[in-house]
Design a protein around this nucleic acid. Structure first.
Lengths: 130, 130
DNA sequence: CGGAATCCACACGGATACTG
DNA sequence: CAGTATCCGTGTGGATTCCG
């Protein structure tokens, strides 16, 4: 049984943005997490590899994202006691099931990005837009 | 042809976190957008309804999210010239196709939230965690 | 190599007040 | 009702430095 600490709002009716969804979104609703899951869906990766593969991610954000995903049981972290240090990240079975959704998002994105970009341009070109 | 303005990083190799995905994530990688899409997947909604249905969303964030999704061609906005004003939001066909993914995320969340929460507790209960 | 820790700017987002 | 506009605190995240 999942209990929410915050007081329930009375008007929680029309379409219930269900709590589980909210909680999961609080974990993965940032682009780095999605990209990390997508990357690890291709197999185990080392920290440095991921840093290079995900353009623009800072060391701090990658660490933070990986820690968060590890905490959620989505990613597992394996440290090798070698010199130099070697740390590998892998999707857990739970993470792999989530990766399926990330993968479908990737497919959707590639199929529809041009439509989205076109829509944005049309929107920005409106007379009232400045 | 989609062109990225920012300079391409040379190390863009191992697993390419493809540009379309990145761009789509820049649009929808926040929880309000996902919740809005999920809500509208249940049908057309008015602004006030959505505000009540999505607990904790401020009027500012809801407006901002809806404007963004409208710009992306995911949500359409219909204004009725009535008193009092009435504004309806609906998913476009593009939005509906994306809603399928959101829906599968909702299902995944409800199926796995307990595992995630349990993992979090185990993680936080580690000796080294403070 | 894979971090942790610190500093700090700025953008995000809440609260409030006002409007068509 | 459905916004817009403004103020403003704070959390996010980049840059840098140091460590095991």
């Amino acid at each position: 049984m999942v209990t929410i600490e915050t007081k329930q709002h009375p008007a929680w009716d029309v379409y219930k943005a269900t709590c589980p969804t909210r909680q999961v979104l609080d974990c993965i609703a940032d682009k780095w997490a999605v990209l990390v899951i997508g990357l690890l869906n291709g197999g185990t990766r080392r920290f440095g590899e991921m840093r290079k593969s995900i353009e623009g991610v800072s060391q701090k954000m990658l660490t933070q994202t990986l820690r968060s995903l590890e905490r959620d049981g989505i990613v597992s972290r394996r440290v090798y006691a070698s010199v130099p240090p070697k740390v590998e990240y892998t999707l857990t079975p739970l993470g792999q099931s989530l990766a399926g959704i990330v993968e479908s998002l990737r497919v959707w994105s590639e199929s529809n990005i041009e439509v989205v970009l076109a829509s944005q341009q049309t929107y920005d070109a409106r007379p009232e837009a400045e």
